[in-house]
Every structure is written in C-alpha cells, then in structure tokens.
Design a binder for these strands. Sequence first.
DNA 1: CGCGATTTGTGCACACCTTCACAAGCGCCT
DNA 2: AGGCGCTTGTGAAGGTGTGCACAAATCGCG
Lengths: 252, 252
Amino acid sequence: MSQQRHGSTPGNAPGDRAGAVTAFPDLPEATIARLPEYLRALHNLGEGGADTVSSEGLAAAAGVNSAKLRKDLSHLGSYGTRGVGYDVALLIEQIEYVLGLDQRRAVCLVGLGNLGHALAGYDGFASRGFKIVALFDADVSKVGEEIQGLTVRHIEDLGRVAVEENIAIGVIATPAGAAQTVADVLVDAGVTSILNFAPCVLSVPANVDVRKVDLAIELQILSFHEHRKASLTALPGGRSATAAGNQEAVGS
Amino acid sequence: MSQQRHGSTPGNAPGDRAGAVTAFPDLPEATIARLPEYLRALHNLGEGGADTVSSEGLAAAAGVNSAKLRKDLSHLGSYGTRGVGYDVALLIEQIEYVLGLDQRRAVCLVGLGNLGHALAGYDGFASRGFKIVALFDADVSKVGEEIQGLTVRHIEDLGRVAVEENIAIGVIATPAGAAQTVADVLVDAGVTSILNFAPCVLSVPANVDVRKVDLAIELQILSFHEHRKASLTALPGGRSATAAGNQEAVGS
DNA sequence: CGCGATTTGTGCACACCTTCACAAGCGCCT
DNA sequence: AGGCGCTTGTGAAGGTGTGCACAAATCGCG
Ligand SMILES: NC(=O)c1ccc[n+]([C@@H]2O[C@H](COP(=O)([O-])OP(=O)(O)OC[C@H]3O[C@@H](n4cnc5c(N)ncnc54)[C@H](O)[C@@H]3O)[C@@H](O)[C@H]2O)c1
Ligand SMILES: NC(=O)c1ccc[n+]([C@@H]2O[C@H](COP(=O)([O-])OP(=O)(O)OC[C@H]3O[C@@H](n4cnc5c(N)ncnc54)[C@H](O)[C@@H]3O)[C@@H](O)[C@H]2O)c1
C-alpha cells in the first residue's frame, strides 16, 4: 500500500482504445510488489544455468504460491509455454521492461551519516539497474567528502544537479526532523519518487510516490508476534525447538 | 504479508474458554502493521503537549484514513471517549502492551559490514524498546572489534550467548549467500524472530517469523511507477510541477 | 501421427481489507 | 436539566488479493 495514491482515476482514456500504447494493463499493486522478487529468483536461476523454469520452481525460489505466481505473470501478458514453463531470459527481459529497469535510473542520496554511508557503499544499487549519481548533505563539514568516487555536495545544489543529471528517485537518510524539508526540496527539483528511511510521514503532491523503510516498525511487528507466541506458550511445555528443518537455500 | 504464516490454526484453545488469558483477539495483520506508526505519531503528539487526540488528528499524523484508524483501535478494545477523542498516554500504554514493548527485547545483529556498522550505531533501537545485546560476524578480523560498547563475537558463540542473553530477535546483515546459514544458526539457538536485510528468501520452521527489508525491491517498485508515470506523460505537455504544496510536517 | 504427461492460464469462491455513513455516547453550555 | 455539537465505534458495501481446481495447450515419444 505504501502511502501514496498514484495515478488519478485510471479510467480508460477515451479515444485511442485501439493501440494500447498508453498506460499499463494496470497491474495490481500486490503483483508489482512481487515482481522484483521474481526477478531476483530468475537471475539466480539463470546464473545456475537454467533455460526454463516451471511456475512451481520459480514460485519456490521466490517464496510464494505457484498459482499466485502464474496469475501475476499472466497479468503482464507473459509468454509461458504450457507443458514446459517460462523461458528464463525472456521472462527477465519482460519483467525488467515492465519495471522500467531497461533504462538505468538516476538516484540521489540525501544525508550522509551512518546510514547514508552504508547506502552509498552498497553495490546492490548498480547491480539492479540504479545508479547513484549524487550525494547531498546539509552539514558543511561533510560537503566535499569523497565517497565511492562521488563528492558530497551541499543540498542547496540539489535543484540544479537534479535537472542536470535527470534524477528521478531520491533517497532520504536524514534525521526525521529534516526529512520533510528534504522531501520538499526533492519535489521542487522535479523528483517524483522518494524512498524514505527517516521514521516519519512525508506529505507530498499526489504525483509523487513515496515508499518508506522503517526498521523500528519491522522490529515492533516482530515484537508483537513474539508477544503473541509467548502468550500461547503459556500452556505447552517449553519449546519443541524444531531446529534443523530447512530446505533449499536460494543462491548457489 | 511478509512471508511467514505465523500461528497454526488460531482455533480457540479447547478448555479454558473462560478467562481470555491466552491469546490475543487475533488482530488483523494489516492492523498490527500500522500500530507502530500510530505509536510514533502518539509519541510525537505527547511530546507536543497534547493530552488527547481525535481519530481525525491521529490519523492525519499517521498518514491514514480516520475510519481505518478507529477500526484498528477498536480491534484492541481501545478506550476512546466519544465527543472527546483518545487519551494519548493511555493509548500509548495500550499499544505498547499489545506490541509487547513493555518488556525490552534483546536483539542480536549478525554481519558487521557496511550495513551492520550503521545498524549497530543506530539509536532507533534503544528508543523504541529494543536493545542490541550482541554482535556476531564470521570474519575473524572483525571479531574483537568494539562497536558502541559491544564487542563483536564469533558466530560460533551465538548459540551460547543467545541463551544467556535470552535473545528473541536476530537481525541478519550478511551477504545473501550466507543468510540462510545464519538463519539456521539463529533458529538453532532458539531465536524465533528474524529481520533479514539480505536480498534472498529464507526458509525457516513455521514457528519462526521472518520479515525482510530489501532496498532493491523498494527502488524497483518506485521504478515501475516512474515508468508508468512517464508513459502517461507522453501526451500532456511537460510537467506541471506542482512543487510547493505540502502541509503539516510530522515532528515538532 | 496420436497419446499421455506436463504445465500454463483462469474461473470461481472465499477471506481480508478499506471506506462510507450513521447511530450511540459524551461533555459542555446555557 | 436539557439540548447541542462533536467524536467514537461499527454495520454494510465494495474492492482487492488469494488459492483451488481444472480446462486448454504444448511437447516428446513410441
Ligand atoms: N543508522 C541506521 O542504521 C538507521 C537505520 C534505520 C533508519 N535510520 C534512519 O535514517 C536516518 C539517518 O540515520 P543516521 O544514523 O545515518 O543519522 P546521522 O545523524 O548519522 O546522519 C544524518 C545525516 O543527515 C544530514 N542532514 C541533517 N539535516 C539535513 C538536511 N536538512 N539536509 C541534508 N542533510 C541533512 C546530517 O548532516 C547527517 O550527515 C534517521 O532518520 C534514522 O532514524 C537509520
Ligand atoms: N550496505 C547497504 O546499504 C545495504 C543496504 C541494503 C541491503 N544490504 C544487504 O545487507 C547485507 C550486508 O551488506 P553490507 O554492505 O554490510 O555487506 P558487507 O560485505 O560489508 O558485510 C557483510 C558482513 O557479513 C559478514 N559475514 C559473512 N558471512 C558471514 C557468516 N556466515 N556469518 C556471520 N557473518 C558473516 C562479513 O564478515 C561482513 O562483515 C547484504 O546482503 C546486502 O545486500 C546492504
């Protein structure tokens, strides 16, 4: 769900009902949230030498139900072959196209503290179709610092650089108190997608998408389940452990 | 959704149908995922000096619909007062109890690379009911390093330390290739909740909850929306910008 | 060339979630 | 004491997502 309503009413554009050049077959949110997982599983399988995968196999690798996977793929008009499965390379291409990963998107990172440094040094960006093209901070003692070949710039330059570099995605790694201000700056600069690590709610215009990653929330959800499990363990004796039991890891 | 089915069939425990001491009024997953957000908003409001909040006000601060918020709170039998609103302090207490935050949970962190260092230095743990009590790594050159007052231990010690410190939650910040192995070790040690930062699917016994944080997935979802927005902007002239427009930030 | 094994794509039923709309309850003011 | 405005709690409706089960399609083999 995130927190942003995206398109206005999707309503079928009256007029060109012939060529579906315009929009996407409006995929369900739940589906698009799973596509990246499928993609990763496919890359793993491909590196493992597989040419085709069955929905069953891919579903297992992605940790989902196979019917769900088939339905997801059918939504994007995917080309599977009955009796055989899906062509790995083709499916990768398809998903990458739908996700818009064929064009390497420029990302900027704002806030180079603890977390920002880790993110800047993360190779998971480049390996998945993204490129960090600029780093910003408000702290003048940080400006000028070189990280992974990029120089930290002052946030005042964001507007100019964003246009120059055609930045579409901004990542916020500042304290919560500064996040809304930074978001405003990003929006002003024409950035239309924001990934927010600060624990706060951002308000942005309707055409901007925001996704949030919040460590504390994840832990608190886990805490709830711990609490619940503990209250259930009241009766049964101790813990039956059940260690061991795990099959098929993902990677090689 | 995450990826774990939690309790087996919740089925009302046969026998003590009198006192509802046992489990929780099985809150909807969607609700418990929002409780932490409400909690944070409440803390902000409380620090701002508010004694009570209306569902409207709290919903705005948490970025949700007010009807949804009321229904969520009603699920946990919350005590609001019609015509007035919710008592901030009381509601905080309620939610913290439900989430099991009244008991400070011990967390361990495995993998002290780039990300692990940032997490170890993060104060958002302590301020939200969690305490990192141990750090583990497999790299002997990292073992012994002192971070934020904690010494990095070898992962072989995890089993022993987990019991000693009563660790319930484990955070995995190792490369994907090692994540499943680490998860197995955690499970063996009796850890029943895992937060995984590695981009891979973990398989664990049914009684263990796993939540995943995956940066690349978030970015790819944003990329999809960018792609979609771009395909819609084909017709309309340029961008109407709409910068400015934002109201009420969260914090003070 | 036909048959059976295999696997996709999907109709359907169900469960969960969201949102509206409103009655019931509460406190304040006169 | 009574009325009035405000806010909660919830019934009902609609939407979204899930998973089963099966027909349709494809391949390989004899
Ligand atoms: N460290 C973690 O592991 C971690 C984990 C999850 C979430 N977070 C969140 O991420 C955010 C950053 O955490 P951190 O530990 O890196 O904090 P930090 O204090 O180490 O770094 C914050 C950085 O943001 C910069 N900054 C402050 N105001 C700014 C502004 N207006 N414009 C641009 N830059 C600005 C600061 O100069 C600093 O470099 C926080 O909101 C934190 O809650 C951190
Ligand atoms: N750096 C980031 O910003 C970032 C962001 C999102 C996700 N991630 C993910 O988090 C994970 C860690 O990223 P990183 O950049 O810190 O990597 P890193 O290589 O810097 O650190 C990995 C650490 O794990 C340790 N390790 C390896 N195998 C181990 C094992 N079997 N047991 C215990 N420890 C082991 C290594 O010694 C190393 O210290 C990766 O999976 C990465 O994809 C990182």
